[in-house]
């Protein structure tokens, strides 16, 4: 049995865990603030989609039943991912889910040249944007997993039958 924590130095582990907690915090607050705002809906974001898959995302917005499902998955998905990353609970599942969810944000709002979004951020982007960097940070966390070192996964998965 290879003990993975031997592969990280203390500094490396600290940096990775702090990064994990920060990303988790960000997701958690995104989810909780949406949950607490009775007015929030993914409608605006979806209808504002541009790029290759804009049609698909926009059609999602046109069905109110589907929209309810998307809203629910978004809010609770973000909260679950956030908690997972902060606590190190089912860390790998949370990380992959985060990559998928933020991947969808990125696909619906690619930072293309000459594309303007109504939900304008303050940043200037060309092809590379926050979502893409976010995804890549999660990929780093995926290949350098820390949940079984610092996290509830350590308690859950160290208990072998």
């Amino acid at each position: 049995m290879i003990k993975k924590h031997k592969t990280f130095s203390n500094t490396q582990l600290t940096v990775l865990v702090v990064a994990r907690v920060l990303i988790g915090w960000y997701c958690l607050y995104e989810g909780v603030s949406k949950l607490m705002n009775p007015n929030w809906s993914s409608f605006a974001f979806l209808i504002d989609s541009k790029g290759w898959f804009a049609g698909i995302f926009q059609s999602m917005a046109s069905s109110s039943a589907l929209l309810n499902v998307i809203d629910f998955m978004n809010v609770w998905g973000l909260i679950a991912i956030g908690l997972g990353l902060i606590l190190g609970l089912l860390t790998q599942v949370a990380t992959v889910s985060g990559i998928v969810l933020i991947g969808l944000y990125w696909l619906s709002h690619p930072a293309l040249i000459n594309v303007k979004y109504m939900l304008a951020g303050t940043d200037n982007t060309l092809w590379v944007d926050k979502n893409l960097i976010f995804i890549f940070l999660l990929v780093i966390l995926l290949v350098f997993p820390t949940g079984k070192e610092i996290g509830i996964d350590r308690i859950l998965f160290n208990r072998k039958k």
Partner: peptide, 20 residues
Amino acid sequence: NNNKVTRRDILKGLATVPVL
């Protein structure tokens, strides 16, 4: 030893809980 949850495991396992 590994299969048992040690005090160290608990501490490290719950280290990030205060963040919440």
